[in-house]
Each structure stands twice: as C-alpha cells, then as structure tokens.
Design a binder for these strands. Sequence first.
DNA 1: TATGGGAATATGTCGGACAAAACATCATTC
DNA 2: GAATGATGTTTTGTCCGACATATTCCCATA
Lengths: 259, 259
Amino acid sequence: MSDKTSFPAVSYDTDARPEKRKNESIADWLGRQIVSGTYACGEAIPKEMDFLAETGISRGAYREAVRRLVGKGMLVTRTRSGTRVTPREKWSLLDPDVVRWSFETGKPPDWYIRALYEMRAMIEPPAAAFAAERRTEEDLQLFRDALHAMRYCDMTEDSWHAADASFHRAILVGSHNPVLHSLEAGICAAVAHTTAFRYRDMSNPHTRNPVDEHAAVFERIEARDPVGARRLMTELVDTALLDSRGTTVFDLGLPTLKG
Amino acid sequence: MSDKTSFPAVSYDTDARPEKRKNESIADWLGRQIVSGTYACGEAIPKEMDFLAETGISRGAYREAVRRLVGKGMLVTRTRSGTRVTPREKWSLLDPDVVRWSFETGKPPDWYIRALYEMRAMIEPPAAAFAAERRTEEDLQLFRDALHAMRYCDMTEDSWHAADASFHRAILVGSHNPVLHSLEAGICAAVAHTTAFRYRDMSNPHTRNPVDEHAAVFERIEARDPVGARRLMTELVDTALLDSRGTTVFDLGLPTLKG
DNA sequence: TATGGGAATATGTCGGACAAAACATCATTC
DNA sequence: GAATGATGTTTTGTCCGACATATTCCCATA
C-alpha cells in the first residue's frame, strides 16, 4: 500500500472543508482512490488493520466510511475474504458523489463522459416537456434568475457555471417528477463538469455563451408548449455533444463494461 | 418510539435471509420504516441511546446502518441536533434498495408509481435504440432466453416475472451505456414491482401475456433498427402505463415534492 | 484423489470511555 | 432592553480493546 497515495495521516484537516466529519473525509478519500483506479475493480483493498496502522484512523470511523461506499455499490465486504472493489457496472454512476469524485480526480475516461452526455440526451428533453406541462410560477422564477445570471456573468467566472447548473436544475425540478428530481444532484454535477471541460478552451469557435438557446427553451416552457420545449432542449444537448466531439476524442469504440 | 414498529429485539434472524449481517438487517429495517412513513420527512428519528436500549443492538452496528442510509441521501446526522429524515427529493429514488423497500412495505404512493413509469418511458425507448446499434451476439442470447421463459411460463408464476425483468435488463445491458447499466437494478426493480401490481387482477381484460410485443422489440434490435426498436419500445411502455391507468387512480394532480 | 476437521485470519459485533459540536441558559455589559 | 459572551447540557463523533463469526487454508486421514 505504500505505493498508493495514502490517506493524509495527520494534516487531513487542512482540506477545503475542515468542518467535515472524519468518516466523511475518509469516504471521500477512499471514493476518489477507487474511481481513479488506484484499486482495480474486483480486487481487494488493504485490510482494516493495515489501513489503521498507516493512517492512525480509528476502526469505527474507517468502517463507517466503508459502509457509505457499500451503499453506493462500490465495495463489498465479506468476512475473512476482505473488502473488494465492485465491478463498475454495479456502481451508482449517477450518484452525485461518484460523479464529483470522477471529475475531481483528473479527466474521467471518455466512455464515462460520453455515457453521461447520452443520459442527458435521454433525460433532459422529456424533462423539459414535463416542465412545460407542469411548471408553476415559482418554477418560472428559478429559470428567470438562472438566465439573468448566465447573461450577465462572464463565462470564465464560476458564477456563470453555477447559473448554468441552476438552469438545468430548474428543468428537473420543474418536471415535477420526484424521481427525476432525485437525479438532480447527479445530473447537475455531470452538466457542470462536462460543460467546464467543454469550455476550457476559450479560443475555440464553439466557445460562446449559449444563453440564447437556454432562453429559447425557457420561452417554450413558459408558453406551456411541451413539443417545442422538447425539441429545443434536444438541440441544446445535441449541440453540446457535438461541440465536445470537436474538442475531444470520442470515437473509441464501445465502452468496456468488464471493469 | 414504543408506538412505532420496533426492530425485532432477539429473533430478528428468523427472517428470510438469516445469513445477513446485522448492520445490513438494521439498515433494511430502518429503510423500510422511513419509506413507509413511520418517521416524517424532516423530523428526527430516535436518538442512538433509545434505539440501543430498545433493540439491544450495539452502537457500532447501528451507526454503520445509519451510514448506509446517509449514503442514499435518506438521513442526515448532526452533532447534538440528532439524526433526521431528509426531504424525499433528496433520496435516491432509483436506488434498488429504495425501490424494493417502497414496494415491499405495502403499496407505494401513486405519485411514486407514476414517476417510475414516466422514467421508464424516458429511458427504455432510447436504451432500446442504443441496443439496436450496439448489441453483441451475447446480448442477443440474453433476449432469447428471457423471451423463451416468458412464452412458456404462466404469468402467475414468479419465473415469468423474473423472465420479464431479464428482458428489460437485457435492454439496458445491451445499450452498452455504463450509466444506463448502473441503473439496471433500480429500473428492473421498478419494472418487476409495477408489473406485478398491474397484473394482480387476472380477470382484467388487459391481463394477457405481452410476450409478443416484447419479441417485436427484440426483432428490431436483432435487425439493428434503432428507429423501429425505439418506436416499439415506446408502445410497450405506453401500453403498460395505460393499462395501469385503467386499474388504479392516477389522476391525483401533480405530485407533492414538499416531503 | 477425495474428504473431513482444525488452525489461521479478516471482517463483524460488542461495550465503555471520552471528544467535539451545537443548542440552551443565564449573566454581563453597553 | 438588546447584544454579547461564558457556561453547561445534550447528542453525535471518535477511539480503544476484546471477542464472535465466517471463510479460507492446510493437513491428516481414508
């Protein structure tokens, strides 16, 4: 285990959020280790005793962290056999934490980015259609606030990305489908990270503020036009996918699911 | 807490799966309590000490169970404040465990069933289209096995429902989108439970073996026809939704997301 | 070779103690 | 009287050490 990045033994609390509980910090660190491939899928991670010896963490805190990841389908524990990393197709790949860990530990694999785009293309257009049918006045205000921020912020600012995420969040919330709403955090994390990745090169001709396309979707939702909202939302996601294809290599064949 | 259904103190291991670990059993029991509304969203669940006193469980096992549910977004813990049930929109409503708990603890609310159908209608048709483009020979065999079992099993048998679930699983696996694949367990749980609910009345004229419609989808996938596969899959899900509308009350207005 | 039983080992459970954080209360101060 | 700050209480968070349980390994035996 010495060749792996070991959990910061003493000064782990110098992170961005020192207020986090220890078991949460460990879960974060462990999750990042796993998604970044430090431990191969199907293989065992170091046994508890080794972990505690290296990190100085107590067994209870470590075990609670492991339980978090077990709940996300990333780990399985068996008496005597040890704790193993689950094959990737068992992971909750739309879980907000998993998305965040994947994008915060370097560029995630192309098959993952592509799969997330495909999910957006499946989910966001019909969600916009539902929103057009069911949106309330409060929902509309969420859209207006997000669009206003998108229009008057520079795309290089974090606030612009936050506004973009808020717009897509408003779509899912406005759909008034609770299951869709529950995917909000994961989808928005995917939107935010894939968009940031897409717009990292500001000299690219595709890099322009897409606020008008967003406003067009909103206008159809406000007009209670499900068909129009779905069509414009489809164009929005397709444009994003095409732009991304222009700046990265997606033609790697089918994604490998074998772990 | 005495008025709530308390965790079986001593004979909890007489359940279906005595081989389960205690912390898993507790998580199952706690999850069922929460989805069945024993503890209102936003309100605190009994504090650890009370729990341990009533059940005889050790604190460590209980806390590990709580961590599982925290990972699914159903609970939040705060020092001194206690442990609270999260608002429903924060739950992972497509998590296999959440779906299972919801359907195994009595009939889930109509807004949940409807939302799951809407998710199926969003996800399964495009998944079928992807499967038509990307399916391998092994994928096709999964379809054939499932269809064969559906055709020659009686719809009252559990094996028929297992075959039905296998067919829908084959759609998601055959899509070769890892994120879709990761939703497999949750979607299939939704399919299985909503279908069992829909076919519970065998005297209903809608209650007939839909194997031919399934076979038609497979035929389009085998023929590498994404457009046809998507269209037939849409019809399949729409039929299921319409049949369900005929046997239950769905017109309850918009779902309430306020918890 | 097959098999049965015991040793080894990793996770699972238990109990108790103390730490830390958040809330409540009350006294102090302006 | 309102804002401020010290103090105590309560609940979750962390740590430690011991033992239980399940599974694998290994060897003796038939």
